Computed example of a mutant assay.
Amino acid sequence: MKVLPVKRAILSVTDKSGLAEFGRFLTDNDCELVSTGGTKKMLKEAGLPVTSVSDVTDFPEILGGRVKTLHPHIHGGILADKDNEGHMETLRDFGIEPFDLVCVNLYNFADAVAKGLDLKAAVEQIDIGGPTMLRATAKNFHSICVIPDPKYYPVVQKEIEENNGISLAFRKEMAALTFKLVSEYDAMITKYLSENDA
């Protein structure tokens, strides 16, 4: 798919810079917003229509928020190859709607370490669902776009305004950047765990 129309997006971000404006842009361009927690709260407070991830999965957040997006109704919608009719038939069979855009940035683990939290408290700041969605979306860049940082919102908006969708070249660029960011995040956690006693 050369140009990807954006009709359904997941937004789940720690850095909420420009979030309301970006959400409004997407809504104004007929995109459904799906979200979690504080991101969903901020979008609602901005007066934007937003669907809860729990409504998509038909399952509540559990384990204090450790499990919320790890579900086939989320990851099936992210990982489906839209050029593969077998994939699309599977989505239809299971009532799964595809996503076009995933906008996620990660829990600030560096900040948790800087605060001097003990090991158990610091571990709670290791993001699991976020990197999983980022990696899944980056892998499937032919069919979906990943946005790992608010600084790319203006570029996405320009792409949609000029092309009525997001180009394959930009999606590939974001995929490569995302894998780099996730690998750096994992390296930071590796270093922290290696240097701190249990």
Rank of each mutant, 00 (worst) to 15 (best):
Lys2Thr: 14
Val6Trp: 11
Ala9Asp: 06
Leu11Cys: 05
Val13Ala: 06
Leu19Asn: 07
Glu21Ser: 15
Arg24Trp: 06
Cys31His: 07
Glu32Arg: 05
Glu32Trp: 00
Gly37Pro: 03
Met42Asn: 10
Lys44Trp: 00
Glu61Pro: 00
Gly64Ser: 06
Gly65Arg: 05
Arg66Tyr: 06
Arg66Glu: 01
Arg66Lys: 13
Arg66Gln: 08
Val67Gly: 00
His73Thr: 13
Asp81His: 15
Asp83Val: 08
Glu85Leu: 13
Gly86Asn: 15
Gly86Gln: 11
Met88Pro: 13
Glu89Pro: 00
Arg92Ser: 15
Leu101Gly: 12
Cys103Trp: 00
Phe109Ile: 07
Asp111Phe: 11
Ala114Ile: 00
Ala114Val: 01
Ala114Pro: 01
Lys120Ala: 15
Asp127Arg: 09
Gly129Pro: 05
Gly130Cys: 06
Pro131Ile: 03
Met133Cys: 14
Thr137Met: 06
Ala138Val: 08
Tyr153Cys: 11
Tyr153Leu: 05
Pro154Leu: 06
Val156Gly: 12
Glu161Pro: 00
Glu161Tyr: 01
Asn163Tyr: 12
Ser167Ile: 06
Leu168Tyr: 14
Leu168Glu: 13
Leu168Ser: 15
Ala175Asn: 09
Lys180Asp: 06
Ser183Trp: 00
Tyr185Met: 04
Tyr185Cys: 09
Lys191Phe: 02
Tyr192Ala: 02
Asn196Asp: 02
